[in-house]
Amino acid sequence: MAHPIKLQIQFGGGAELLFDSIKSRTIELPAIDKYFPECQREKWTIKELLVWMKDNLLRERPELFLQGDSVRPGILVLVNDTDWELYDELSYELLEGDTIAFISTLHGG
Rank of each mutant, 00 (worst) to 15 (best):
L94Y: 00
K34D: 12
L106E: 15
L64S: 10
P73D: 09
G109I: 01
P37G: 14
N56A: 05
D55C: 05
V71Y: 00
G74C: 04
E89I: 11
S70P: 15
W52S: 08
N80C: 10
W44I: 03
P4R: 12
G108A: 12
C39V: 08
L49I: 08
T45P: 05
E60K: 04
K47A: 09
E89K: 13
A15M: 13
E28G: 05
G109N: 08
T105V: 14
T26C: 04
E16N: 11
F65G: 08
G12H: 00
A101N: 06
R61K: 06
I100V: 03
P73T: 11
P30D: 06
W44D: 02
E16G: 02
L50R: 11
E63G: 07
K47D: 03
F19M: 09
K34Y: 07
L17R: 06
D98C: 01
K23T: 14
S70E: 15
E28Q: 11
F11P: 06
E28S: 10
D55E: 14
Q10V: 02
D69C: 04
G13C: 03
E93P: 03
Y35R: 07
E89D: 10
L94M: 03
T26W: 10
G13T: 06
E16C: 06
L66D: 14
I46P: 01
F19C: 03
W84T: 02
G97H: 03
F19V: 04
W52G: 09
I103T: 04
P37E: 09
L106T: 14
G108V: 06
L17K: 14
D69L: 05
A2Y: 10
G74R: 11
T99H: 06
L57R: 11
E96L: 08
L94F: 01
G108Q: 12
M1D: 05
T99V: 07
S24T: 10
T105M: 13
E93G: 04
G109V: 11
G14T: 01
S104Y: 00
L7R: 07
W52V: 12
K47W: 00
L64R: 05
F102G: 08
R41K: 13
I103R: 04
P37H: 08
L58A: 08
G12Q: 13
F19S: 04
I46E: 12
E63H: 06
F36A: 02
E28I: 07
S104F: 00
T45W: 01
L7Q: 05
I100C: 02
G68D: 11
I27M: 06
D83H: 10
D81F: 09
